[in-house]
Amino acid sequence: MGIKKINRKAYLNLVETVLFLDFIKGLSVTIRNMIKKPITTQYPKEKLTPPKRFRGAHGHFVWDGTEPDSLKAIEKFMSYEKGKSRCVACYMCQTACPMPSLFRIEAVQLPDGRKKVVRFDMNLLNCLFCGLCVDACPVGCLTMTDIFELANYSRRDEVLNMERLEIHGKDFTARRGEEPDRIWPDDKERERLWGKIEWS
């Protein structure tokens, strides 16, 4: 299989070449762009709202009555409080993770036989935000929020502990919980940025 050579004449005939038709086409595109309003979001001043499914920093959903059935079934084996993390320390997230050592999960057994999660740390410096841990969570606890400003002044601050995960989870539920679970926040916004899609 050789290289197919395409002549310039296949695109432009002589008259079009002489009149610089290709130049004019390109120039008309750029001048239209120039008249158009810029699409820049000036980041620190304006911030785009990411879609709900955005894979940002992690969070834990808390016990607030919206638990899935899988969690209700084992409710009595767990030591929990309302408004605290739903985590059951099943290690599914760590198993699913391509970089398992970023998790530090510990649980203890209380004297009455119930299980209590005492530690759930995530080192986000190692995280690649693939979302596999979220898919693996059997009790609908671990989630990913739309928080994307994750820079910090020290490496220590990059480790999410349970309190911060709960805060993220509560915050995310409060802000975006009611929103329908779609890739884009709304089609108007997408049309403004990238133009309308025409389905056949």
Partner: peptide
């Protein structure tokens, strides 16, 4: 500025 607006950006602002 021209380059920015041609590429639908703002340019220096």
């Amino acid at each position: 500025k021209v380059a920015g607006h041609i590429q639908a950006r703002m340019g220096p602002s």
